[in-house]
């Protein structure tokens, strides 16, 4: 929806893609594409953009259809899997609670948008809850239940990295995709500092 013009700051000026997007939402909410809806939608969007200007965000967004399809497929699979996990766990009676852990997962991507995309995707990982995002160091902090199970922490970390790669290949710029190619394990030595 956004052309590749990442360097334009969003100040008190009209942002055409944003207005187009808001107009589309407006028309959908008012049940249909009529001329009246179009005109009023553009009017409302322009007024909104003038009255509530957004802060300048570096929009390093690319839309890659194949990557988006792969991400969507994986997320759907993950969502079904985690729903089944949650259902089994809630129907399985009250077990003795196992210890949980909060682990840091350093990401390879650096732009805010990619970190956000990864963080949103990660919420679908079964048994992991996002506790904190550190944008400065591109680190996600996840709450992992049943953390004493062997390999559970490592598996969660690998899941996050796989989701990160999928998200960046769906929305990232070329530079970010190159960064994803790096080995995530290179961050390993630094990860235990919070021990």
């Amino acid at each position: 929806m956004t052309p590749p013009a990442p360097k334009v700051p969003r100040g008190r000026r009209l942002d055409v893609p944003l207005i187009a997007w808001l107009t589309v939402i407006w028309m959908l909410l008012w049940s249909g594409p009529t001329w009246g809806n179009l005109v009023s939608g553009v009017l409302v969007s322009v007024v909104l953009c003038l009255v509530f200007p957004l802060p300048a965000v570096e929009l390093a967004l690319r839309l890659r259809p194949i990557g988006i399809l792969r991400l969507a497929g994986y997320l759907l699979y993950d969502m079904v899997a985690s729903s089944i996990t949650v259902t089994l766990r809630s129907l399985g009676g009250t077990r003795r609670p196992r210890p949980a852990a909060v682990i840091a997962v350093p990401l390879r991507c650096r732009t805010d948008l990619m970190i956000a995309a990864t963080a949103v995707s990660v919420s679908c990982v079964p048994g992991g809850a996002l506790v904190e995002v550190n944008g400065a160091t591109a680190t996600l902090f996840l709450h992992v239940s049943d953390a004493d199970a062997p390999g559970k922490v490592e598996r969660t970390r690998r899941d996050v990295w796989r989701l990160e790669a999928l998200a960046v290949r769906a929305f990232g710029t070329r530079a970010e995709i190159d960064r994803i190619g790096a080995d995530p394990a290179r961050e390993e030595p630094g990860r235990d500092r919070g021990e």
């Binding site: 609670p97 210890p99 852990a101 909060v102 840091a104 904190e132 550190n134 902090f141 500092r193 919070g194």
Partner: peptide
């Protein structure tokens, strides 16, 4: 129970 480990305890 207590957390097994907490990477977020000091930083972030």
């Amino acid at each position: 129970g207590p957390l097994l480990r907490d990477d977020l305890a000091g930083q972030g």
